[in-house]
Amino acid sequence: MKNYYLSENDFSDFVTRMISTKELIAPIAKGPRFVFSKIKSPSEIRLDYDVTILPPKKEFFPPRQNLVKFSSKGYEGCIDPKEKILFGVHPYDVKGIDITDTVFENNKKDMNYLANRRAATIVASNIQKVSSRAFWDTVGADIKAKGHDAFLTKISDGYHFQTLTTKGDALISCGKFTAATEKQSSEAKKVNESVNGTCPEKLKHSSKDIAKKVRDSFSKKEMWDKMAQRCFSCGTCNIVCPTCYCFDVQDKWNVDQTSGVRTRYWDSCLTEEFSKISLGAGHSENFRESRGSRYRHRIMRKAAYLNETLGGPACIGCGRCSSGCTANIADPVEAINTIMEVK
């Protein structure tokens, strides 16, 4: 771990140099919201963003990802990682990436994700603006963000830049960095600590207590049905979630009608047909037929099911689902706090 300092004036030069070496993905404005996007010029970067529409996992696990290409001559995989710098990732999203890293490493390794992940350098950044539905300071608060290569913090007259890996160290050559003074490092520490406790939404219990109570509430059918009454089964809460990784796989022919691709698409367990199987002769069975059972499955996955595998909840408190849900029912804080109150 090494601490550096970069002056405000040298920042844009640093970004320009990074762009010249690798693809640089950073938060930019999109209408009233923000998105991670490939940038061409330093002025596009908006480190004062609150939260992006989609989490940065899309860089490793894109919404549509080809798995196999086939033609009359044969078939081949589509793993083709590009070196990228993912710049300005908030710590909660770093935790999200850590979670998808774990699930794609687990069981059988999924190189379609991991190859992209390994080709990336992740530069985290301090949170300059807290989003209106965030609760990252009360969910799995004891879990530290890890897996990033460097951490950039805006301090009074420039940036504090901490490198954590050799990939992080490699970025130093892109800018006019000097060793950070102790004062600069302690200011950075203070900046990062000061955001804790500022999230507008709060969970009131520990992850462990939540996991137990939520899991034990499985059979409270009426409660789940009531919670999901306004659910559109639209899948927004899943698709914007940093820790959702379900997908569908479909084959398609190209226009020549002989070659084609097998592609995976982000899928959503809230949509009606996610668990439906065909039994033939027009018959089918849907293992999660009601809105309530699908809503419950999502809350279970976020708060209980994966905790053992991950060492904490599969939720990082970004609030994307809460703000994305037009029926305003997806908010895990509201759901969990309600469940915790139910006797």
Binding site: V103, F104, N106, N107, K108, D110, Y245, C246, F247, D248, V249, R264, D267, C269, F274, S275
Partner: peptide, 9 residues
């Protein structure tokens, strides 16, 4: 879909 504990179906 995946058969390897990823796709969730």
């Amino acid at each position: 879909k995946c058969g390897v504990g990823k796709c969730g179906h």
